[in-house]
């Protein structure tokens, strides 16, 4: 409980977002509220075009809401939240930089001392299992290894919150299974600064497998349909009858 009484760790409070199109104003997000607790893994699920990625960018402070507020740790968030790291769907790696250089980008941008950059980059490269690939270029890497670079870069700035925007949707099915596991391992790793994860996905199974709570969104304008707690023990089994029940429930809300 925060000093203001009922403000949680991270909150979207009655957020709306408008955008202008052909001389008229469209409402993209309507009166959307969402709380995320510290240590929680929350998934945002919804059909494509439902503004999930826009929501992540509002959370991070890259896009300002037209009305409503974002609260972080008892205060109204203004500007970009530096306690957040982002993992992108398309990896967002610089092709002319090697693994080590790509991972160091966030730290260098923050003006961190070079010797500290080297130490942290080596630590997070090791953590995500990329040791041995330091001088490889993105073109030499499989999709799974590219996304590990994306993860290491996000983790290296030692954020409290990790935002992931469809992080596995550019990977083949088998690689996805392995990486989901490894992200969960990192989330539970006491040496990681990240305690809280907000992930956008359109894959229901992925949301149930990984998260504590699934927030189901609908589009035009984007709003929360329902929030569903996932009370299954980990590691989770896709063949669990409760898994099926949750999956059917979410599917019926989306379709």
């Amino acid at each position: 409980m925060g000093i203001m009484g009922n403000i949680p760790f991270l909150r979207l409070d009655h957020i709306s977002r408008e955008f202008a199109e052909e001389n008229r104003v469209n409402l993209a997000i309507r009166d959307l509220s969402l709380d995320v607790s510290e240590g929680e893994f929350v998934s945002l699920v919804g059909p494509s075009g439902c503004g999930k990625s826009t929501l992540l960018r509002i959370l991070q402070g890259l896009i300002a809401p037209s009305s409503g507020k974002v609260f972080y740790k008892d205060a109204v968030q203004t500007g970009v939240n530096r306690d957040m790291g982002m993992v992108f769907q398309g990896f967002a790696l610089y092709p002319w930089l090697n693994v080590r250089e790509n991972v160091s980008l966030g730290l260098v941008a923050r003006g961190v001392d070079p010797s500290v950059v080297d130490r942290k980059v080596a630590f997070y490269i090791d953590k995500v299992g990329l040791e041995g690939y330091e001088e490889a270029y993105p073109r030499e890497l499989s999709g799974g290894m590219k996304q590990r670079v994306g993860l290491a870069r996000a983790l290296a700035i030692e954020p409290a919150i990790l935002l992931m925007d469809e992080p596995f949707s550019n990977l083949d099915a088998l690689t996805t299974l392995t990486l989901r596991d490894e992200v969960l391992m990192l989330w539970k790793d006491p040496e990681m600064s990240v305690r809280t994860i907000v992930m956008v996905t359109h894959i229901i199974e992925e949301a149930i497998l990984m998260s504590d709570r699934v927030v189901v969104l609908a589009r035009r304008p984007t709003h929360v349909v329902e929030e569903i707690a996932v009370d299954l023990s980990r590691p989770r089994d896709r063949r669990d009858p409760e898994f099926d029940r949750l999956s059917d429930r979410i599917f019926s809300l989306i379709s």
């Binding site: 398309g90 990896f91 890497l141 499989s142 999709g143 799974g144 290894m145 590219k146 996304q147 550019n170 990977l171 083949d172 099915a173 088998l174 690689t175 996805t176 299974l177 392995t178 990486l179």
Partner: peptide, 18 residues
């Protein structure tokens, strides 16, 4: 798919298969 196809069997895919 951006990172694939791979011309070799990657470890992440083998672990996924297992």
């Amino acid at each position: 798919m951006e990172g694939d196809p791979e011309h070799y069997p990657g470890i992440s895919r083998i672990v996924g298969l297992l």
